[in-house]
Design a protein around this nucleic acid. Structure first.
Lengths: 305, 305
DNA sequence: ATCTTGCATGAATATCATGCATGGTTGGAT
DNA sequence: ATCCAACCATGCATGATATTCATGCAAGAT
């Protein structure tokens, strides 16, 4: 039962580099005798000579030359593997699979990921949106490592943290009749076309928190996939939409849009990031949460502020 | 001082394959405890968890998944390396670098190499013809492993063996005036065109053993590279040449050639193969010499026979 | 010749991996 | 609910084995 061990590869390479067992031994912090014994044993087990002893010189046999080639090929891979593992250890390296469950989350995420990528170049960031058993399920099933969601669920083993407060407002175009009002009532929308992302109604805050409680429906409801187009349509007066206020503010220079509070109290929203509790102290995960919190603080707007 | 050893790779892979430490231990002919200790130590040294212990299940961490990938990549290479080394050991595998120093050697070699390749598929055969310090030097310098030569040199550490006897004869074309003579004298060639390989005169037997001792030179001397063309020219009466008799015999069906003995005694030649003495019992080398000997015996022609 | 350098080897030793015994936890079966 | 079986972790003992030490031998170098 021959076993080609890492030591053997190291010895062969060191001897090749330094020309002698003695010199090689020094590099490996061993004695010449140790190397001699080690190779001797390997030779016995494999039944093949690694070197021919010519006087006091070691000449590699064909087998030895082959073994050297193997060593030069494999040893770097082993050391690199160790290096990477150590990076995993310190949380310098890893794969951060982020799951998002809402469209505003996506918009916000874009702003956070960019500085994160710069700060953690060895972390592979991956963003996913579709989950068979929902975001929480994906977190439990290790499909993702971090969940961005407006609906935290304080389950055992998970840890959620709010990272971003914002107000969901009604967005209207230039010269819209509702623009400039202190706030709108549900009734104001009975004659409007409401543009939303194409998701179930119960996942749209304007329905769950505003329209449905009042038993009101807009005149028309139009789903649009992308935020850009959605904003364009609102700006051109084709309809109104419910979006985070900061998203509207960002477009101030580009599009002529107005933001109107939804109801007297407004709709206050929070985005949370959730992670598995046991992974809370992984550096690159922790760093993301911290970065997210900082970023959120700067943009967040209190409804009552 | 972390050391990623072969065992660790084996353990990680076995656990992945069998799902549990216990099952993996069985495959590796070790106890569950041994694996647990081994991985534990690696984890401590690297500072990274390979698996997370969830209940009685081991779930690979990202580091563990990476390590598994490394194991799946490297372990086969290690076992294959062992396999190859064992082949070297039994002499099943190797590189046989053959050196040749003479044109007849080359012709003869072609006949031997072909069956050899079939018998030793794992041996790389390489034929070389140019040597800075001559064939013997190349053998000493390990440039080649086997030398085919008509001029053996019984130096210390080398072993030569005759493998092929032949007679060097004068080859003449159809209807040539010398054809049918029992033998030719040097004087017969004073009016002939002598065709030879393009090498120094002192490496041509017809000069060293026949013409020069008699102080005779042919009318013309024409060098030709390849045996095929050379024979064509002789057959068409453009000149005469000195070649092994068996080479002429081989062409009997194709070309109309005649062979005439050079001098009353003829020129007897021998081809030898030489190897380094210490490598005499390497299977694939030994086999070549044996095969060469058998092949030579069948074709050899005694000058006096 | 003599000295130096380098490898091999046998015996002594130190190290380290392995096994044993055991306890804790979990998930499933009764 | 309870028990059982499966599985992993761990402290300790021990045996295997890698390493060293001391030495001899051979071959270049001076």
């Amino acid at each position: 039962m021959a076993q080609l061990e890492r030591t053997h590869l190291a010895i062969v390479r060191a001897v090749d580099q330094h020309g002698s067992l003695t010199a090689a031994a020094e590099q490996l912090h061993l004695t010449q005798s140790a190397l001699s014994h080690a190779i001797r044993k390997l030779e016995d087990q494999l039944g093949v000579a690694i070197w021919t002893r010519e006087g006091r010189r070691l000449r590699p046999t064909q087998a030895g030359a082959y073994l050297l080639a193997v060593a030069n090929r494999l040893l770097p891979q082993l050391t690199q593997a160790e290096e990477r593992l150590r990076q995993f250890a310190q949380g310098e390296r890893g794969a951060l699979r982020i799951g998002i469950e809402c469209h505003p989350c996506h918009q916000w995420l874009l702003k956070v990921v960019s500085p994160y990528l710069a700060a953690w170049p060895d972390v592979d960031v991956d963003v996913r949106q579709e989950f068979q058993f929902g975001g929480i399920g994906a977190l439990f099933a290790h499909e993702i490592d971090l969940l961005v969601t407006p609906d935290p669920l304080y389950a055992h083993g998970l840890r959620f943290e709010p990272v971003f407060d914002y107000e969901q407002v009604l967005v209207v175009g230039a010269g819209h009749r509702l623009r400039g009002l202190p706030y709108v009532q549900p009734e104001h929308l009975t004659e409007e076309t409401l543009i939303t992302y194409p998701v179930a109604l119960d996942r749209l805050d304007i329905y769950t928190h505003f329209l449905l409680p009042a038993g009101i429906r807009p005149k028309r409801h139009k789903p649009i996939e992308t935020t850009d187009i959605l904003l364009q349509m609102v700006a051109s007066g084709r309809g109104v939409a419910a979006l985070p206020r900061w998203l509207v503010d960002e477009q101030a220079g580009t599009l002529d849009l107005g933001a109107v509070r939804l109801g007297a109290q407004g709709i206050a929203k929070q985005i949370f990031v959730g992670i598995r509790e046991r992974e809370a102290d992984i550096d690159y995960l922790h760093a993301f949460v911290a970065l997210a919190r900082d970023h959120g603080g700067g943009m967040g707007a209190s409804v009552n502020g």
